[in-house]
């Protein structure tokens, strides 16, 4: 696969490490979250056949974490963002 890195352009997927569902960004605050919320965050993932937003880490590159929107049926990559931008957009600043 080739991942179009938002800063570096097309890069071979072999340079990346895969983590999984991008919902891992949405970590609840451990001080206020219920047991169930924290459990769901740590253990439960969707496993869609089709579009999937997922985390890739450019370990052999610039060490950016990316959110890659990839179709799990066709491996089509339709959108790639810096995970930091996604985190900020979902209100994770500070």
């Amino acid at each position: 696969m080739i991942i179009p890195h938002p800063l570096l352009g097309p890069r071979d997927a072999a340079e990346f490490v895969y983590k999984g569902d991008a919902s891992l960004i949405n970590r609840p605050d451990g001080m206020t979250a219920s047991d169930d919320e924290m459990h769901d965050y740590a253990y439960l993932r969707d496993n869609p056949a089709g579009e999937h937003r997922e985390l890739w880490y450019h370990e052999q590159g610039d060490r950016s974490w990316l959110v890659v929107t990839r179709n799990t049926m066709t491996h089509d990559i339709t959108y790639v963002e810096l995970a930091r931008d996604v985190a900020r957009a979902s209100g994770r600043s500070r």
């Binding site: 974490w65 810096l82 500070r94």
Partner: peptide, 11 residues
């Protein structure tokens, strides 16, 4: 790096 970029992007 995951924690820095994805969990607390503005530290």
């Amino acid at each position: 790096e995951f924690a820095r970029q994805c969990l607390w992007p503005d530290l």
